[in-house]
């Protein structure tokens, strides 16, 4: 009887052998990239959302359920960005490790100070994120905080490699600080831009420029012809330094506005991998900032 109990317990407790890699499932490409910097060869990363996808509108594909089923840790952006598919993925995964409240449920947004948390919100305002602007991956300081959180979380899951995670974090920190100096020296301060979507607020806050208007009249609502007319007039008058967009959002509208007003359109990758050169978080930020000041 006792033997059976022991065998049963042995079967139930998920045995993680010391040599096995920590299986990390990241929702967005930038999360996968930062996790890779911290985990390196100790982790095996699966990224659910493809760089060409709109992170706001993702279908829960069965392959994602399969990946989360095997995950030791699930890392996600949070602030309701993944609300359309992540709850169902977590439930369908049947994976006890990654349920809310478990160490394997890693919400990156817990480690950042959030901008634009609305005091009150309803959906007549468009698809406003009620918990604040979720696109903090453009903020180097915040990414560093997230990386610190990742290092602690990975060390807790895999204590035998805690030193490696610590060392990787130190390397990452050095690199971010060096880059911060480099990016901070670029002439972004005081500039004014118009943006398609509310995507670049953290970038503006960190690099000292302002976003004066949006091409979308309300978040998630594409502009009407009349609104475009109004924008042409407004942009023509205020002459901002550029109109910001990403490869997947409103390219047509921004190209049209740029052509009509002579103000340049600036295509910024919305995530790692969204443009051919943005192969990790650093090159993603390099591309973002060089596009801004071009």
């Amino acid at each position: 009887m006792r033997k059976t109990a022991i065998v049963l317990i042995a079967l139930l407790v998920p045995a993680t052998p010391a040599f096995a890699k920590v299986k990390v499932v990241a929702t967005l490409p930038w999360i996968g990239s930062v996790a890779d910097e911290i985990g390196k060869e100790q982790v095996e990363i699966t990224t659910l959302v493809k760089p060409n996808q709109d992170p706001h509108m993702v279908d829960a594909r069965p392959s994602m359920i399969l990946a989360t089923r095997k995950a030791d840790i699930l890392m996600y952006n949070g602030l309701d960005l993944e609300i359309g598919y992540l709850p169902i993925l977590i439930e369908s995964s049947r994976n006890p490790n990654i349920q809310p409240g478990k160490p394997g449920n890693f919400d990156c947004s817990h480690f950042v100070t959030v901008l634009e948390k609305p005091v009150s919100v309803d959906r007549s305002m468009g698809d406003v994120h009620p918990l604040g602007n979720p696109h903090y991956h453009y903020s180097p300081a915040r990414i560093l905080s997230v990386a610190e959180g990742m290092a602690s979380a990975l060390s807790a899951l895999d204590p035998s490699h805690a030193d490696a995670y610590k060392a990787n974090l130190a390397t990452f920190r050095e690199k971010v600080r060096a880059k911060q100096k480099e990016w901070g020296a670029l002439p972004t301060k005081g500039k004014q831009f118009v943006a398609y979507h509310k995507l670049f607020e953290y970038l503006a806050a960190d690099f000292g420029f302002t976003i004066t208007a949006y091409v979308e009249p309300k978040p998630g609502i594409p502009p009407s012809a009349a609104y475009i007319e109004h924008l042409i007039e407004a942009i023509g008058r205020s002459r901002p330094n550029g109109i910001l967009t990403t490869p997947i959002y409103g390219r047509k509208e921004v190209d049209f506005l740029a052509q009509k007003t002579g103000v340049r359109g600036v295509v910024i990758p919305h995530d790692v991998g969204a443009t051919p050169g943005a192969k990790d978080w650093f090159s993603f930020m390099d591309q973002t900032l060089s596009a801004l000041v071009k």
């Binding site: 160490p103 817990h110 300081a141 905080s145 979380a153 807790a156 920190r173 806050a205 960190d206």
Partner: peptide, 27 residues
């Protein structure tokens, strides 16, 4: 949180003291 001017880059390079809302202990 971010570099404001080239001169301020040193300060900006420091990690944000206004730390994460949550401590980094996953437990």
């Amino acid at each position: 949180g971010g570099p404001s001017a080239p001169g301020a880059a040193e300060t900006a390079a420091l990690p944000t003291p206004s730390k994460p809302v949550q401590t980094a202990t996953p437990g």
